[in-house]
Amino acid sequence: MIRKFFVSSIDHAGFTLSFIVGVQLPEFIQQYTQMINGKLAEAQFHLSKFQSVANNHFNGDLQVLVERYTNNADPAIKQTGIVVSELIDRIALLSEQLSQLTEVPYMEKLYYFIVHLDLESAQLTAQHYQLAVPLTIDALLTGALFASFIILIPRAFIALLSAKSSKFYYQEGRH
C-alpha cells in the first residue's frame, strides 16, 4: 500500500512538473519569435543602406548592385557584394521563419518550431528567457500533451518490456 502511494505520488509530481515545463513552450516560442523579429529588423536596417546606394546608382535594383560588386576586381568590393547577397538571403530566411511563427495556426507553428528550430536563435532566447505562466488554451493544451507524453512513454516502455519478458517466460515453459 505504501509502495502504491509512493508510486502514485511520483506520477503526480512527474505529471505536474512536466505540465509546468510544457506550459512554458508557447512562451518560449513567443520569445523566440521576438528574437527572430529583432534579427530580421536588424538585417533589413543594414540592407536599407545598400538599397539606398542601389536607388542612387542602379535604378533601385539591388541585384544589379550585387552583380557589380561581386564582379569587381577589387577584393574588398567583391567581398562586399557577397556580404550583401548573403544579407538578402538571410532576410528571406528570417522572413519565412517569422511568417511561419506568426501567421499559421498553433499546431502548425509548434510543428514548424520543432522541425525548423534555429539553434543559435534558440540558445540566445534561452539565455534571455523570462519565465511566465501563460494561461492561454495553447499553453494549457501544450502542457497537458507534454505531461501526458512524459508520463505515458516510460509506462508504455515498461509495459512492452513486461510483455516481452512474460512471453519469453511462457515460451520457455517456465510457468
Rank of each mutant, 00 (worst) to 15 (best):
Y112V: 02
L47Y: 05
A122S: 09
A144M: 10
F19M: 05
L87N: 07
A13F: 14
E27W: 05
I36R: 03
L40Q: 05
V133M: 14
P26C: 04
I2S: 06
Q100H: 10
Q97V: 02
V53M: 11
I29Q: 02
V66R: 02
E42Y: 14
Q171L: 14
F5H: 06
I114H: 07
I151Y: 05
Q79C: 03
V7R: 08
G38V: 01
I20R: 02
V83G: 04
L135R: 06
I2Q: 05
H175A: 13
D61M: 04
K4G: 03
Q30R: 15
L101E: 06
F157P: 00
I77G: 03
T125S: 02
F28K: 01
L135Y: 12
K164H: 06
V7G: 01
K39V: 01
L161Y: 08
E172V: 05
I20P: 02
H128Q: 13
P134L: 12
F5I: 13
T16D: 08
Y112H: 05
I77M: 13
L40V: 04
Q51A: 07
K78M: 13
H128W: 06
T136Y: 07
P26F: 09
S9T: 11
I82R: 07
L119W: 12
E103Q: 14
L87C: 02
R90Q: 13
S162F: 09
I91G: 00
Y106F: 15
I10Y: 11
T80D: 10
I158S: 04
L152G: 00
L110G: 01
Y106A: 04
K49Y: 12
L62C: 04
R3G: 06
Q51G: 01
A139Q: 04
I77E: 09
A73L: 13
H128P: 01
K167A: 14
E86H: 11
F6W: 12
V66C: 03
Q44D: 12
T33W: 08
V115L: 09
V53H: 08
I150N: 04
Q44Y: 06
L87P: 00
H12V: 14
A126T: 08
H46Y: 15
L117N: 08
G14C: 05
P105K: 09
I29Y: 05
L152I: 10
K39G: 03
Q24K: 03
E120R: 11
N37H: 12
F5R: 09
Y106P: 01
R155E: 11
I36S: 03
D11N: 09
F113N: 00
H175I: 11
A163H: 10
F6K: 06
R68Y: 14
A132I: 06
A73V: 10
Q79T: 14
N71R: 10
D89P: 00
A132D: 13
K164Y: 12
H175S: 07
H12W: 15
L124I: 04
D61V: 04
L141N: 07
F50C: 01
I10S: 01
A147W: 03
F5G: 00
N56G: 07
Q51P: 01
L65W: 02
L124D: 13
K39T: 02
K39R: 14
G173A: 08
G22W: 04
Q63K: 10
E42C: 03
S99N: 14
R90K: 14
N72W: 12
